[in-house]
C-alpha cells in the first residue's frame, strides 16, 4: 500500500515537474561530481526537477557550448576554460559577486585571473592532478615526476597516461621547467622528446575506467586526480598520490550560467543553495575534492589527517589559458606523439 502510494506520488512529481517549464534545472557538470542527496534536497525545497548530464573533459563542455543552444542552465568549467568562455561570450555575467554565495568563498579564491571581477562564476571545487601508484605493485620513490616520465624497474610498461594532453603535457612541462602555455617551439620539442622517450614504457593513454585499471594491476601507475584517488583509497584500494617536488597540476571548477540558459532563476537558486556552508560541506564530503567555500569545520570528513592528498605541501601550478599559438604546439606535440 505504502509502495503504491509512493509510486503514485513519484509519477505525480514527474508530471508536475514536466508540466511547469519554470520548475526545471538542467545541469551539465563533471560526471558524478554533484552529491545526489543535495540534488534531491534542492529539488524538494524549491519544487524543481533537476536533470543532470555529465562530461569528462573541459573540451567536451567547451565544444558543446560553442556549438550553441545547449539548453543547459549551469556548467562547471575549470579555470583555464572559464577564461575562454568569458572571452568568447559563452557564459553570462550573473553578478556573482552580489550573491550571498560570494560571501562564502574563501577570500584566497576570490577575484582570480580567471574571473577578476567575480561576476561570472562561483567556485565549487578545486584540486590537483598527478600520478597515482598502486602500492602493491610499486613501492619505489614517488617524490619526482621523473619516476613517471623517465621510469625504471617496476613501472616500465605499467604506466597509464590520460587520453588528452591538457593535464599530462602540463605535468611534463613542470618536470622540464618549461612554462605552461609556452609559445617556444624549441621548448615544446623538449616536451615531445620526453613523452616520446616515455612512450615505450606506457601501456595505455586513456581517461576512462581509471580506478579499475589501476586496481586490477593492469597498470601500476595512472595519471589521475587527487579526489578520485582519495575516494578509492578510503574504500580500501592500495593507492597513493605522488607528491612530486616539481609540483602538481592544479585546477579549480566554478559554476557558470551559459548564454541562453532557459532556467536562469533556478540556476541562481542552485548556486546559492550549494554554496551554503552546510551544503558545501556535504558536497565536499561526497566529491572528495577540496572546497573553496566556508565549511562547517566539524562536519568535514576529509581533514588533513584523513586525506593528506588534499593538502599538498609541494607547489601547485594551475593550468593557464593558452594562446592559440601555444595551444597549437600542445596539439602538435600530442599528434606527433600518437601519430
Amino acid at each position: 500500500m505504502m509502495k503504491r502510494y509512493l509510486a503514485t506520488s513519484a509519477i505525480a512529481l514527474c508530471v508536475a515537474g514536466a508540466a511547469h517549464a519554470e520548475g526545471q534545472l538542467n545541469l551539465y557538470v563533471w560526471a558524478e561530481s554533484i552529491s545526489p542527496d543535495l540534488i534531491a534536497k534542492f529539488s524538494q525545497e524549491h519544487d524543481v526537477q533537476v536533470n543532470v548530464d555529465g562530461y569528462t573533459s573541459n573540451e567536451d563542455l567547451l565544444t558543446k557550448l560553442q556549438a550553441g543552444s545547449s539548453g543547459y542552465d549551469l556548467a562547471t568549467p575549470s579555470q583555464h576554460f572559464l577564461r575562454i568562455m568569458i572571452d568568447e561570450g559563452l557564459i553570462q555575467n550573473y553578478g556573482a559577486n552580489t550573491l550571498t554565495a560570494y560571501e562564502n568563498i574563501d577570500p584566497r579564491w576570490r577575484n582570480q585571473w580567471w574571473d577578476e571581477s567575480q561576476e561570472y562564476s562561483i567556485p565549487i571545487a578545486y584540486g590537483t592532478a598527478g600520478f597515482v601508484v598502486n602500492t602493491e605493485l610499486y613501492n619505489g620513490p614517488t617524490d619526482s615526476l621523473g619516476h613517471f616520465f623517465e621510469p625504471e624497474g617496476d613501472l616500465v610498461g605499467k604506466i597509464a597516461m590520460l587520453s588528452y594532453p591538457d593535464e599530462v603535457v602540463g605535468a611534463a612541462q613542470l618536470y622540464l621547467g618549461v612554462p605552461f602555455c609556452s609559445e617556444d617551439p624549441a621548448e615544446m620539442k623538449r616536451v615531445l622528446d620526453l613523452l616520446m622517450a616515455q612512450k615505450p614504457a606506457v601501456a595505455v593513454y586513456s581517461s576512462d575506467n581509471i580506478a579499475s585499471r589501476l586496481a586490477s594491476g593492469e597498470v601500476a601507475t595512472h595519471f589521475w586526480w587527487d579526489g578520485e584517488e582519495l575516494k578509492a583509497r578510503v574504500n580500501g584500494a592500495p593507492f597513493a598520490l605522488a607528491m612530486t617536488k616539481e609540483g602538481l597540476v592544479g585546477w579549480i571548477d566554478s559554476m557558470v550560467i551559459p548564454v541562453g540558459a532557459p532556467n536562469y532563476d533556478n540556476a541562481i537558486k542552485f548556486i546559492e543553495f550549494i554554496s551554503e556552508p552546510e551544503n558545501a560541506t556535504e558536497q565536499m564530503n561526497f566529491y572528495a575534492h577540496s572546497s573553496p567555500m566556508t565549511l562547517v569545520e566539524e562536519n568535514v570528513v576529509y581533514t588533513k589527517e584523513v586525506a593528506p592528498e588534499l593538502y599538498p605541501e609541494v607547489p601547485v601550478e594551475f593550468s593557464r589559458t593558452c594562446s592559440p599559438a601555444a595551444q597549437d604546439l600542445v596539439t602538435r606535440v600530442w599528434t606527433q606523439l600518437l601519430q
Binding site: 567536451d60 565544444t63 591538457d166 593513454y205 586513456s206
Partner: peptide
C-alpha cells in the same frame, strides 16, 4: 589498443576538442 596510435576517428575528435581547430 590503449590509444597509443591515433586513428582517423580519434584525430577528428582531438581537433574538435583539445586541438580547438
Amino acid at each position: 589498443g590503449g590509444g597509443k596510435q591515433m586513428m582517423m576517428g580519434s584525430l577528428i575528435q582531438l581537433q574538435f576538442g583539445g586541438g580547438r581547430n
